[in-house]
Design a protein around this nucleic acid. Structure first.
Length: 258
DNA sequence: ATGACTGGTGTGACCAGA
């Protein structure tokens, strides 16, 4: 079972690339972030035509998350991150597909830091850590997939010294990520490729992709039953080089069949 | 330190992204 996370930076602007990539790679589950579309404008017909069922949580202009499942319908288990009734941003959706619980998240960027946006990032992170705690001990596989907007270590950025004051790499952000990991999650890409340089995002500015000036900020975290089935993990980085590409590339794992 | 690039919105000296 191949499970992918892909920040599309507008589902409408990216639809031709998305359909091409779905056809080329035939993933089983796809977690999408930054749909940038209202709920009723999600292109469900085109995705059904391509062979995917879907659930999504849209929002006008910004944010928005979706889960696609090839040949079946995701069974929704959660919509919106619990813990703050005043948080109306569409950044979390969760579903059960083929016996695997899949969380799709879009953690706030948090810049500029310090400031109210950074405070929101950290409070969202705390709510996510609390929710993740309720999932980690399941006897069945759980995958937390998404755009975390977290550079976990200096190995995950082309020039760490330039990012120390950025919301993606600040001490508070990395500490929160470490506390999440300490619950017992495994970073799938890093587990299978401990010493490789792996990026999932390249800025649109300054020819960042051409210079390979990237960041690793899209992650798939696994509980123990999911880790037992982990076989492969990689980034479809060539998709970042296509015309009209998102600034993120699809990032994926493969779990063995039961 | 700034701006460069892209998308949404809607025609803003706009905002947000990372």
């Amino acid at each position: 079972m191949r499970i992918v996370t892909y920040n599309v930076n507008s589902i409408h602007a990216r639809l031709p690339n998305l359909l091409r990539w779905l056809d080329e790679t035939r993933p089983d589950v796809v977690c999408l972030q930054e749909l940038k579309t209202p709920q009723d404008k999600f292109p469900i017909d085109a995705l059904r035509e391509a062979g995917f069922g879907a659930i999504w949580h849209g929002q006008k202009s910004w944010n928005g998350v979706a889960i696609l499942a090839r040949g079946c319908e995701p069974v929704e288990t959660q919509r919106g991150l619990p813990g703050d009734p005043e948080d109306l941003q569409s950044r979390y959706i969760e579903a059960e597909i083929g016996g695997v619980l899949i969380a799709c998240l879009y953690l706030p960027n948090g810049n500029p830091a310090p400031g109210p946006k950074f405070d929101f990032k950290l409070s969202w992170f705390e709510r996510f850590i609390a929710h993740a705690q309720s999932l980690i001990d399941r006897a069945t596989p759980v995958v937390l997939a998404g755009d975390y907007n977290v550079i976990p270590t200096g190995k995950d950025v082309y020039k760490p010294e330039r990012w120390v004051d950025d919301a993606l790499f600040r001490e508070e952000t990395r500490t929160a990520f470490e506390r999440l990991m300490a619950q017992g999650w495994t970073d799938a890409l890093r587990k299978l490729h401990p010493n490789e340089t792996i990026y999932t995002f390249w800025d649109y500015f300054r020819n960042a992709y051409g210079r390979d000036a990237g960041l690793r900020i899209d992650h798939l975290l696994l509980n123990a039953p999911a880790l037992m089935r982990l076989e492969r993990a990689a980034v479809d980085r060539h998709v970042r080089g296509w015309e009209k590409a998102s600034d993120h590339a699809p990032t994926w794992i493969e779990l063995s069949d039961t």
